[in-house]
Design a protein around this nucleic acid. Sequence first.
RNA 1: GUGGGGAUGCCGGAGUGGCCAAACGGGCUGGACUUAAGAUCCAGUGGCAUCUUUGCCUACGGGGGUUCGAAUCCUCCUCCCCACACCA
Length: 1001
Amino acid sequence: MEINFKGIEKKWQKRWAEAKIFETGDDDPREKFYVLEMFPYPSGSGLHMGHAWNYTIGDILARFKIMSGFNVIHPMGYDALGLPAENAAIEAGEHPEDYNKKSIANYIKQQKALGLSYDWSRMISTDDPKFYRWDQWIFLKMFEKGLAYQKESAVNWCPECNTVLANEQVHDGNCWRHEDSSVEVKHLKQWFFKITDYADELYEGLNDIDWPETTKTMQRNWIGKSYGTEIMLEVEGGEKGNVVIVHGSQFLNANSDKGYFEPNEQPWMLWIKNKIEDRIKVDIPLMPNYNNPVYEDWKNEFEKLGVNENTILIGHSLGCAFLVRWLGETKTKIKKLILIAPAKKCVLKYYNEKAEVFYDFKIDKDIKKNISEIIIFTTNNDYEEIMQGSKLYNEELGGELIELKNHGHFIKKHMGTNEFPELLDKIIGSQTWPIFTTRPDTLFGVTFMVVSAQHQKLMDLVKDSEREKVEEFLKGLGSVSEKELGDMEKKGVFSGSYAVNPINGERIPVYVGNFVVADYGSGMVMGVPAHDKRDFEFARKYGIDVKEVVKGGDISKEAYVDSGDLVNSGDFNGMNNNEAKERITQHLESKGLGKKVVNFKLRDWGISRQRYWGTPIPIIHCKDCGAVPVPEDEFPVKLPRKVKFGDGNPLLTNEKWVNVKCPKCGKKAKRETDTMDTFVNSSWYFLRFCDPNNDESIFDSEKVKSWCPVDRYVGGQEHACMHLIYSRFYVKFLRDLGMFDFGEPFASLFHQGMLHAEDGSKMSKSKGNVVLPESVSDKYGIDTARFFLSSLASPDKDIDWSERGIIGSLRFVKRIFGVFDSVKIDKDSAKLESKVNEVVRNVSKYYDEFLYRKATIEIRELFDLIASEKEASMDTLEKFLKLLSPICPHISEELWEKLGNKVFVSDFSWPEFDESKIEKKSEMMDLNGKIIERVKGILKKGTKKVYVYVMPFEREGVDVGRIGAEIEREVEVFTVNDSEKIDPKNMAKKAKPGMPSVYLE
RNA sequence: GUGGGGAUGCCGGAGUGGCCAAACGGGCUGGACUUAAGAUCCAGUGGCAUCUUUGCCUACGGGGGUUCGAAUCCUCCUCCCCACACCA
């Protein structure tokens, strides 16, 4: 029999379209159901059978739901913006806009030929400015809320794509699109979306959605929530440069015995020098004629010393005036300026006149631009003029003004102590680093720290003496790509700095390491070699101490990472380490040195792409006003058509587009030429389907509220950590804007398997193994293909195309036509009636759960019965077609019409079933009868007693009296698991449910 | 390494305590139809025995266990796939 599949398909597709049966109204009282397949990037090469299958999976469900009486929204659109489209267009020598229009048109044609139940009136395409203007609107809202921001950062650069990639788009150090281009690290200013603000909700929200466990796990791993303790750690800065202390005038009586010191030998000066000179050079020059100072003389003397941008200058009293004057004159850049009791005029009457001249200068406010830190020390009991001087300097120069108690004029006579720790702090500038750890219990076992080699503040930690070694180390890493970095062995180099363990005050060396991630936690980790594998290796390699703090393993051989009791841990000794985690954290917390924190692996989403075919970022860069958003009434910022493709960002080549006026100040400014990552479009397109033609707003909230969230979302698992996280983020953001009230876009998610080519490999144009739906449709009919693919395996599994296999389905389809021609329409046999009810019941469930394969099996079974009975009721034949129609809509429609129906089967109600009509399988129908029959069959004359063995659940139904009467023997019944049973021949084992076993005595 | 999923007949793939030598399909074998091929239809498809009935043996990656009873539950092992991969 030959069937004109093409004709049938065309006929019904046309009729469905004319009757608009798949167009969905917004105000339908029926319960809504949103079925969505991930919208495709419309590739120029069109869709192959694998794509067709993806849409079919959703289509079968949508059709089932339509028939089941739901108000089904089942839309389709095109993810047309993006790099691949741009590249394909360039390769084809066409403008992306034109190229894409053609691709989309081709896609639509192909999809329509598949007979998919889309509501084409809702179609959207992301390259339409009417669509992407709302990308820009969302960007603006993000910008307003501080969730869109720019930062200079190390980014993943794909040389193939000529653009930056998001973290999610880098796999194994390679671009997700170009398996053999290794991603480079570049430093660029980029736009980011602050997805991390939603990290916790993205993580926790996974508990409430019906998604495949694997995908949820992947997202959980990606977001990477971990609970731990943040420990505040003091790290001595790596000093570099030098310190110069310029003393004041010597005005005290030279004869006073205890009060007398040379001006450059004030005890605190010597104390400081002594404290730090092994780490940093300290000069305390004795200035000429200090009792009769002449500025020029001091200047000459002072300039003999090296002063550069790494110098810390410390002045005391008159010395301060000298330094400020000198800095104002010379505009020298220095690191820090510390003024101690600075004077702006002479404080003692008998003081030399020349000193007055010394103070005769104006404080140059601009010097603060050349100094990264200015600190002024004053006290409460200095000379009045000096205290005022401190304030004056502070007013003019800014910086920090520190008032100490009872330090007089900071000379021996007044201070009462030789020590000046406050100053020491300011010189060494010890830094506080928060350290994240999940093992605060091992804090006593810390023997080193490692800071990331990529850390921005790394050099602040490196001491001069180690600088060369560190730089060499960094150089060694610099030539390595991101990918190799992953495989590299853990290496480190000593930074020269030490951290202080807050729990016991121990000094811990800080290393620079290649294995510490710079932007996780604070980029510095504590090393506990005794209880962490990696730390153990590191310590072994560099001869660092391994200090056991948790008992349980042999730390001379390997790190012990399991639990145990604490040792070498001060007050916490003997405590179980799990308890110690809490207690040590509490202890730190009480001292303000630590707290419980949650940390995430998730990073902000870098959305800048240096390419043309994307949504323009609606920002204008102005020299004076900075990044200024394009006003909403100027939206959309359309992509200019005229650009040159070649090297670099094409948008830069349209100067007219780039050069604009600043919306704020009206001066000349430039447009942002980065475009947005293509994933911004797919992050919310499913919302737009609810109101696709709205030009007034992104969508009508009421419509979105009535349709969303998506009830069943069908798409590939490869988007687990990209599209599916971004969409969740967008939805949460839009919800927080008050657009709607749900927080998750996709209530349930289904990942389809991939359709491979006949040889089991991926279908690809280059391999020449692509199966095209058109040719399949010509040869076998699209319904046959749908049935075949449905029957292969459950749709979440990968399957292989098979020309031979589809013949089996073709055979089935042809048989259907044959049987429908010949079957006598009358009434059902009891068997058929039971079967049809059973199949309706089961298939309904199967469709709802994507168990299409099982559906095809039962449909076949029902069909086989109809065929063998040769007679069936009209009702049964109709039910059969209804059951078949989600998978084979065209031929079902055709046969439905042949039965004399005028309405569409696709739009008809789903069949119901009657549970009571389904024959119960002979389950213990007459257990006693069976026993009697069986015993009678083997009964011998000499048999005296009969033992019967039944299943425990059958025991109650056994009528010993009746059996005994029938067989005229003594009967004893045992359950098969009765340990006291009499069973010499081990017959109990042979018993099966419904089939007891028997032993004759 | 971590997390997830697997391993069933010639093949794809059901089955998740008893009705399982294992659904359904493909393939293969035989038969019907035909001059023949294709298509279609029927039957068979672990082994041995047997008159249909039926019995026994060997089988669901490998070992061990729980149970009256295991493809199905537990445990260890092997192998395969997928994802994340130095996240402290």
